[in-house]
Design a protein around this nucleic acid. Sequence first.
DNA 1: CAGTGGTCTAGACCACAGC
DNA 2: CTGTGGTCTAGACCACTGA
Lengths: 242, 242
Amino acid sequence: MMNNIFVTLYKDFAEKIDSGILAPGSKLPSEHDLAQHYEITRETVRKGLNLLAQNGYIHKVKGKGSFVLERDRYNFPVSGLVSYKEMTERMGKLSNTLVYVTECTHAGEFISKQLQISADTKVWRVVRAREIDGERIILDIDFLLASVVPHLSKEITGQSIYEYLEKELNLKISYAKKVISVERATGMDYEYMDIGEDTHVVVVRGYVHLEDTTLFQYSESRHRLDKFQFVDFARRENTLSF
Amino acid sequence: MMNNIFVTLYKDFAEKIDSGILAPGSKLPSEHDLAQHYEITRETVRKGLNLLAQNGYIHKVKGKGSFVLERDRYNFPVSGLVSYKEMTERMGKLSNTLVYVTECTHAGEFISKQLQISADTKVWRVVRAREIDGERIILDIDFLLASVVPHLSKEITGQSIYEYLEKELNLKISYAKKVISVERATGMDYEYMDIGEDTHVVVVRGYVHLEDTTLFQYSESRHRLDKFQFVDFARRENTLSF
DNA sequence: CAGTGGTCTAGACCACAGC
DNA sequence: CTGTGGTCTAGACCACTGA
């Protein structure tokens, strides 16, 4: 129930493009026309259109207009900060979460470095496998500051941690840095995932910050090689050109 | 020599943050103050600040202000559409490009599918290895529409193709989709890269579009497992919340 | 309460595309 | 030339922060 006009415009067109009502290549009404239709200013129209452009829905050309891009709904980024649960739901895939560990412990040497805290700081440690089509293909290991998240349980970690944090604790997650690399599989990988003969896994390290910039979560998402995919949409910043 | 005021503001602060003059955690002047200082409107100030926020330089909090984020200059995205040459230059690394193939040929079955053209369309095929510290760790295979790029040579591909396209041919590259996955190494990988006993490589497939939305380039950037890294900075879109 | 960022208005001038 | 998107102005009101 929020009433940002430019978000409304964004959603209107995102919906139309996703559903195919607006075909790829077709031209949007001009900013001037949209302003009249929505009874708003052109600057406000532009905010909505820029949001569409950022998310790969449309492409704007000076002097010509805005055009719908080809964008397959499922195989698309939406950027990294979407949880596994949201993603599988979007793909309509059958999935299952296996919770192996939900404990409160001390950070220890490695985690204290990642979270930039002292080694005896209390953190929640959560280990979960993500099962799709009967195979455990992702191993998620999460560490969350206990000072930020006082309580966790197997019921919560079995669902979505983020949903709990945002809806119950009213925490505001703001931004994250993710680092993707390929590393040798560990004993935990062999134990908690179905990786067969593979010697390596894809590791996505996540550093998640709250609105006050607190680094409150470090996570490792370990993927089986053959099931890993990451899609990125990027615009050439002709605006900048350093 | 372009005079967008908000880009000037962006560059000013990006520079100050990169050089360390503005330390992480420090507070920027308020939008009102910046508007006065630059003698521009607050809306224009905001465009510059939003650009800084998008690129991970700062973080804005309603009611409080804008704050400098920790952002190591080298290990940062700048998003995908930066060529290998630009990247190594940014890191100050010693690098070398080995050109194996620069030929004009027919697209063939696989490439015609990737570029959505017919199999007998003429395309340039470029195969290059990227050598860093004496090891060939990246294999770049590029296919470019000959109708868009009429001429190529070993001299050009040995430097930067993008620089040639933008500066000589005045082509405007607009956006790209990249797909990262891990795949079995091929005979070409073993021949043109130093991958030793590895059985897999990281493959980054790129689909590059011009300003008129033409898909004019398909590329495969094949990386040795231990030298691959991809960094992503993402904001949680609290604006949207579908 | 004053200060901050978020949104929006009603204009203006510019650069570019295409006829 | 008209129509398009890109930039910018000089205001306004709102929601949030913190003293």
